[in-house]
Measured scan of single mutants.
Amino acid sequence: RGFLEKAAVKKMAKAIMADPNKADEVYKKWADKGYTLTQMSNFLKSKTAGKYDRVYNGYVIHLD
């Protein structure tokens, strides 16, 4: 289950990176699912340092 969630989160993160207008909708879905910042950090780990920082930081702001 965790692997599928991670894959889904990364897919949506890539969608945000391609079209930032989708961010609020995606952040709301993640918040509704109760994803914590720790979970998001783990889901968005990448071999490329900083690749998903913008998405993660946007989610931090959304939760605030």
Rank of each mutant, 00 (worst) to 15 (best):
G34F: 04
G50E: 06
K29V: 10
Y59A: 02
N42Q: 14
V60F: 05
K14F: 05
K28D: 06
I16S: 02
K33C: 14
Y35R: 01
I16M: 05
D32C: 13
S41I: 07
E5P: 05
I16E: 01
S46Q: 04
Y56Q: 02
Y27N: 01
V55C: 03
M12I: 05
T48H: 08
T38W: 12
V55F: 02
W30S: 00
S46M: 05
H62W: 14
A23H: 05
V55K: 02
A7G: 07
D24Y: 11
D53G: 04
N21G: 12
G34Q: 05
R54N: 14
N57C: 14
D53H: 05
I61R: 14
E25K: 09
S46Y: 11
V9S: 01
F43Y: 08
K14D: 13
V26R: 02
S41W: 14
Y27I: 02
T48F: 07
K11E: 06
K22I: 14
V9A: 04
V60D: 03
W30I: 00
M12A: 12
W30T: 00
K29M: 10
K29G: 09
A8N: 09
Y27H: 01
P20N: 06
Q39R: 06
L63E: 02
S41R: 12
A31P: 00
D24I: 10
A13R: 02
A13Y: 03
A49W: 07
D19I: 03
K45A: 10
Y27S: 00
K33W: 14
G58S: 03
N57P: 01
T48C: 13
M12Q: 15
E5I: 13
Y56P: 02
G2D: 15
D32N: 11
R1L: 15
Y27P: 00
K47V: 07
K22D: 04
Y35V: 04
G50F: 08
N42H: 12
Y35F: 07
A7N: 11
A8L: 12
K47D: 12
Y27Q: 00
V26E: 03
G2R: 11
N21Q: 12
R1M: 15
T36W: 03
S46P: 05
N57E: 11
P20C: 11
T38E: 12
K6Y: 12
M40K: 00
T38V: 12
F43E: 03
K51G: 05
N42W: 15
R1S: 15
I16W: 02
E25Q: 08
F3Q: 15
L4H: 12
M40S: 00
D64S: 14
K28M: 07
T36Y: 02
P20H: 09
D19L: 04
D19G: 03
A15P: 01
A15D: 09
P20M: 05
P20W: 12
W30Y: 01
D19N: 09
K10W: 09
H62D: 01
T36M: 03
Y56S: 01
A49N: 12
D24E: 12
M17F: 05
A15M: 11
K47R: 10
A49I: 12
T38I: 14
A23S: 08
K11S: 08
K22G: 06
G34M: 04
K45P: 03
F43G: 02
N21D: 08
T38Y: 10
I16R: 00
L44P: 01
K14V: 08
K51L: 14
W30K: 00
V26M: 08
T36K: 04
H62I: 03
K47T: 11
Y27A: 00
G34A: 05
Y52V: 02
K11W: 10
H62P: 01
K6S: 09
F3S: 12
K6I: 14
E5W: 06
V55I: 10
T36A: 03
A23P: 01
D53R: 05
W30F: 03
K28W: 04
K22Y: 06
L37W: 02
W30V: 01
M40Y: 01
K51T: 08
F3H: 14
F3C: 15
E5N: 08
A8M: 13
K10M: 13
K47P: 07
Y56K: 03
K14T: 07
L44N: 01
A23L: 03
D64R: 14
R54V: 09
D53F: 05
Y52C: 03
A31L: 07
A49K: 12
S41D: 08
V60I: 08
K14L: 10
E25G: 06
N57L: 12
A8I: 10
K45E: 11
M12R: 04
V26Y: 08
N57I: 14
Y59M: 01
Y27R: 00
K51N: 05
W30Q: 00
V60M: 10
P20F: 07
A8P: 03
I61A: 13
W30A: 00
D64P: 04
V26F: 06
R54P: 10
K10S: 04
G58P: 02
G50H: 09
W30D: 00
K14H: 08
K22V: 12
F43L: 09
N21H: 11
I61Q: 12
G2V: 08
L4Y: 14
E25Y: 09
V55E: 01
I16P: 00
N21R: 12
K28R: 11
G2M: 08
I61G: 07
K28L: 06
D53A: 08
T36P: 01
V60A: 12
K45I: 10
R1I: 15
D53Y: 06
T48I: 13
I61K: 13
K33V: 08
F3L: 06
K28G: 06
Y35E: 00
D64Y: 11
A13M: 02
G2N: 14
A49H: 14
K11V: 09
V60P: 01
D24C: 14
K11C: 15
D32T: 09
D19P: 00
K29Y: 13
V26P: 01
K11M: 10
R1D: 15
G50Y: 05
K33T: 11
R54A: 12
M17S: 04
L44Y: 01
L44V: 01
S41Q: 14
E25C: 14
M17N: 05
K29E: 11
G58F: 03
A49C: 13
L63R: 04
E5A: 08
F43K: 01
T48S: 09
Y59S: 00
N42L: 11
D19V: 04
K10P: 00
L63I: 07
D53P: 01
Q39E: 09
K47A: 09
A13N: 01
D32I: 09
Y27G: 00
D64K: 15
D53N: 07
F43D: 02
A18K: 13
D19F: 07
Y59Q: 00
E5F: 08
S46V: 08
T48V: 14
K28A: 09
R54D: 14
A15K: 11
A15Q: 14
D53Q: 10
K11G: 07
E25A: 11
K10I: 15
K47W: 05
F3N: 14
K14M: 09
S41N: 09
R54E: 13
N21Y: 12
K14R: 12
V9G: 02
A31C: 13
L4C: 15
H62Y: 15
Y59E: 00
A7S: 11
N42V: 12
Y52D: 02
G34K: 06
A31G: 04
P20R: 06
S41T: 13
Y52A: 01
D53C: 11
A31S: 11
A23V: 03
K45M: 10
F43Q: 03
R1A: 15
A7I: 15
K10A: 05
K22R: 10
D24S: 13
V60S: 08
R1N: 15
I16A: 08
D19S: 05
Y52S: 02
F3V: 10
D53S: 07
K10D: 03
L63A: 03
L44S: 00
E25I: 10
A13Q: 00
Y27E: 00
N21F: 08
H62K: 04
A18N: 08
K45T: 13
A13F: 03
A31I: 04
L63G: 02
K22C: 15
P20D: 05
R1Y: 13
Y27T: 01
Y59D: 00
Y56D: 00
N42T: 11
D24P: 14
N21T: 13
A31Q: 13
A18Q: 11
A31H: 10
W30M: 02
T36L: 03
M17A: 04
Y35G: 01
G34V: 02
T38F: 12
Q39A: 08
E5M: 07
W30E: 00
D32F: 08
A18H: 11
G34P: 08
Y35P: 01
S46W: 09
T38M: 13
E25M: 10
G2Y: 15
Y35D: 00
F43H: 04
R1K: 15
Y56L: 13
K33D: 06
L37I: 10
V55T: 01
A7Y: 15
D24T: 12
L37H: 04
S46F: 09
A13V: 05
A49Y: 10
L44E: 00
N42P: 01
A23F: 02
Y35C: 05
A31N: 05
K29L: 14
E25T: 08
D19M: 06
A7D: 04
D32G: 07
G34R: 06
V9R: 01
L4G: 13
V60T: 06
